[in-house]
Write a protein that binds this DNA or RNA. Sequence first.
DNA 1: CGGAATCCCTTGGGATACTG
DNA 2: CAGTATCCCAAGGGATTCCG
Lengths: 146, 146
Amino acid sequence: MNAAKGTSVSPGDRGVVDYEHSCEAGPEVGRTIRDVLDRVGDKWSLLVIATLREERMRFSELLRHIPGISQRMLTLTLRQLERDGLITRTAYAEVPPRVEYELTALGGTLVVIARTIGDWAIAHHGEIERSRARYDARRPPHGGAE
Amino acid sequence: MNAAKGTSVSPGDRGVVDYEHSCEAGPEVGRTIRDVLDRVGDKWSLLVIATLREERMRFSELLRHIPGISQRMLTLTLRQLERDGLITRTAYAEVPPRVEYELTALGGTLVVIARTIGDWAIAHHGEIERSRARYDARRPPHGGAE
DNA sequence: CGGAATCCCTTGGGATACTG
DNA sequence: CAGTATCCCAAGGGATTCCG
């Protein structure tokens, strides 16, 4: 996402973490988390991935299956995913044109992430909602005690 | 990110949450993924979670351990995480003041997500880099054939 | 020390219109 | 059908300053 235009890019940016040992899931998680989050942590990427889990779909199909997305964002997201090698784009030289998208093997591995996240959300969103309500009750938005 | 202020009324926001019939991995994974992504999919939340995996840390410690973050974003992120019940904030009435943050049990469950993401990134970021390079080589950013 | 407030530029992303 | 191109507003987030 961040092209070579960085005016607000800090020197060194998010490349360095003072983690000493880099075991597979150890303390260096920070940098890697940022890395993958910059890639698929946007509003739609994981959603697209999850939507075409294993079936190839056309542009308009995806548009219909992902309710909130605009055609612009679908296009941009698909382009980025294609660039990252997570999906393939196949255009048929027909009229009217037909374009199909499909997960690559690499993209398929991301489904695990999607599932993990989905499972977590399903398991804990209730707790979070309650916690939020409690917090907001203690810290009223604007007024004091009324 | 704006805490209790009530001003953020995003048009077209996904306000519908009917997870009652939550299918564990069906086509509507979308909503759940979006849900958790809206919560911890921002630039710093998962990073903070991963950083204070199990040890309580003070504000300035976190600031030092998460290189790229600004004091402002750390504050906002911590507030949100506290509101969501993912961390606890303990302020000691001393001088100079000392504040410590710690993962809650709920927050601890998020570490699984962080690990999954971290593992995935470690395993595949090389492939992605290569794919990007290949893509960019085929589609030059601005110029024609060079 | 730990924040809260302000400033302000950058980015995300929706709406709409046009094209091959 | 499957995009591209513009416009434009709102959210994200860094830098800086002020405060208990």
